[in-house]
Computed example of a mutant assay.
Amino acid sequence: MTAQPHEVSSSAIERTFTAVRASLPAANVAAFDAELAAITHADVVDLAALDDFLTGWWHIAVRAAGDPEDWQRMHTEAEQIRSGQRSAGASLAEVLARRGVQL
Rank of each mutant, 00 (worst) to 15 (best):
E7K: 09
E77Q: 07
H59M: 05
E94I: 00
V101R: 00
A64E: 10
A27G: 12
I13Q: 02
D67F: 03
A27P: 11
M1A: 02
I13E: 00
W58F: 07
L47A: 12
D33A: 12
R98V: 06
S91N: 04
A61Y: 01
A42G: 13
V101W: 02
P5D: 08
V62G: 02
P25D: 13
D52V: 07
S11W: 03
A34N: 14
M74Y: 02
F32E: 07
M1E: 02
A49E: 14
H6S: 13
P5V: 12
S23D: 09
S9A: 08
W71Y: 09
A26S: 15
M1L: 00
M1P: 05
A26R: 15
A37D: 14
A26E: 15
E94S: 11
A65Q: 08
D67G: 07
P25W: 12
A64T: 07
D33Y: 13
G56Q: 11
G100S: 02
W58R: 03
D67I: 10
Q102R: 15
V95G: 01
D51T: 10
A34Q: 14
A93S: 14
S11N: 11
E7T: 12
D43R: 08
I39W: 08
D46L: 09
L36P: 05
L24W: 06
I81F: 05
S91M: 10
Q72I: 03
S9Y: 00
E79T: 08
A61Q: 06
I39P: 13
D46G: 04
A26M: 15
Q4V: 13
P5L: 12
N28T: 09
T2R: 02
R99T: 02
Q102C: 04
M74F: 01
A65P: 05
L96H: 02
G56Y: 15
A31V: 14
A31D: 15
R99E: 01
L36W: 13
G100M: 00
M1V: 09
R73T: 03
A48S: 12
L54C: 13
G66D: 08
L92W: 03
A48Q: 14
A22Y: 08
T2N: 04
F17Q: 05
A65V: 06
L54P: 10
S9E: 13
F17L: 06
H41N: 15
L96K: 11
A88G: 05
D70N: 03
A30N: 15
G84F: 01
T18G: 02
A19H: 03
A31W: 14
S91T: 14
L47H: 06
E69C: 01
T16K: 08
G56L: 06
T76V: 07
I60V: 15
E35G: 14
A88T: 11
M74K: 00
T18E: 11
A48Y: 12
R15N: 03
R63V: 02
R86A: 07
